[in-house]
Amino acid sequence: MSASTTVGAPETTPTPAGAPRPEALSRPGVRAAVGLAVPVLLLLAWWAATAAGAFSAVQLPSPQAVVRAGADLAGRGDLWTHIGISTQRVLLGFAIGAVLGLAVGSALGLSRWADALLAPLIGALRAVPSLAWVPLLILWMQIGEDSKVTLIAIGAFFPVFTTVHSALRHVDPHLVEAGRAFGYHGLSLLRTVQLPAVVPAVFSGLRLALAQAWLFLVAAELIASSMGLGFLLTDSQNNGRTDRLILAIILLAVLGKVSDWGLGLVERWALRRWS
């Protein structure tokens, strides 16, 4: 130890010159601005590539062409109908799948008999591709909203089931015994002790399920749909409207991020409430 070193002083790692301090990201607006940097750079690169003529208008239309396509659809009222119908389908399917995933995951996570009986079957069903369900759902439910929402619910079910099931299997047994000592049993034990203990895992599953619901939306809207962003994707492809196709992709990305942000707010409230 050198003579200039103070005994007992905490060691600090110097921040490289010009590097942003870690606490800067916690300031309001700073993190959002940093997160927008890459999308803005991609938008500039997109504009530059189309302006330079590196791609044809069919391969990659300019950002201005995509904006005009969106304005045209919005002016006719079709854009808001596509967005509203797709959002409704996703939220309804996500809600159904999440509730079922929470219920079944809790049952298998708490019961060894239920786990041994049903876990192999659910694991096998989880490996079935989303499009494989489409013909069966059409046969069972005909062409309509029920088949579309059911397919989205299937996609949302498995992430919630997997995370809740795994988390409950690893809850601290001493915590469970303490709950039983206070008179909690069955559903009251699950609601009061076990589920609060796995809140972070539950919301991880919910956020994965929400992303999966948006993925399954496109497959769901292949079921003879005439409206929705998934329909807009396939219809634009069939008609060679790359501008509308890219618009649909951007809208799916934005809606997915906004819905995930809203669920993140609920997650922060739940963590403050139960953690």
Results as ranks from 00 to 15, higher is better:
S4N: 12
G8P: 01
G8V: 11
G8E: 13
P10D: 13
T13L: 14
P14Y: 05
T15R: 15
T15H: 08
T15F: 04
T15S: 11
A17P: 09
P20H: 06
R21V: 10
P22V: 10
A24P: 07
G29D: 13
G29P: 01
V30S: 06
A32F: 10
V34R: 00
G35M: 08
G35P: 02
G35E: 11
L36W: 09
L41S: 11
A45N: 11
A45G: 14
A49V: 13
T50K: 01
F55H: 14
A57I: 01
V58G: 01
Q59H: 06
Q59N: 07
L60H: 08
L60A: 00
P61Y: 04
P61I: 08
P63D: 08
V66S: 11
V67N: 05
G70N: 05
G70E: 05
D72S: 13
L73K: 08
L73I: 12
A74H: 02
G75P: 03
H82S: 09
I85F: 10
I85V: 15
S86H: 06
S86M: 06
S86F: 02
T87H: 05
T87I: 07
R89T: 13
L91A: 13
L92S: 11
G93V: 11
I96V: 15
G97N: 05
A98Q: 08
L102M: 15
L102N: 06
A103Y: 02
S106R: 09
S106F: 02
L108A: 14
S111I: 14
A119I: 03
A124S: 12
A124V: 14
L125R: 03
L125N: 03
R126F: 11
P129T: 07
S130M: 08
L131W: 03
A132L: 06
W133N: 02
L137A: 12
L139H: 03
W140D: 12
I143R: 07
E145R: 06
V149S: 06
T150I: 12
T150E: 09
G155I: 11
G155P: 06
V160S: 02
V164G: 07
H165Q: 15
S166K: 04
A167S: 12
V171S: 06
D172R: 14
V176N: 03
R180D: 00
F182L: 13
F182V: 08
Y184M: 07
L187H: 02
V193P: 02
V193G: 03
L195Y: 02
P196L: 13
A197F: 03
V198Y: 10
V198D: 07
P200D: 13
V202A: 12
F203C: 07
S204F: 02
A211R: 04
A211T: 15
A213H: 00
W214A: 04
W214E: 06
W214H: 01
F216K: 00
L217F: 02
V218W: 04
E221M: 04
I223G: 03
L233D: 00
T234K: 00
T234V: 15
D235W: 05
T242N: 06
L245I: 09
I246S: 03
L247F: 02
I250Y: 01
L252W: 00
L255G: 10
G256Q: 08
G256V: 09
K257Y: 07
W261G: 11
W261H: 12
L265T: 10
R272F: 01
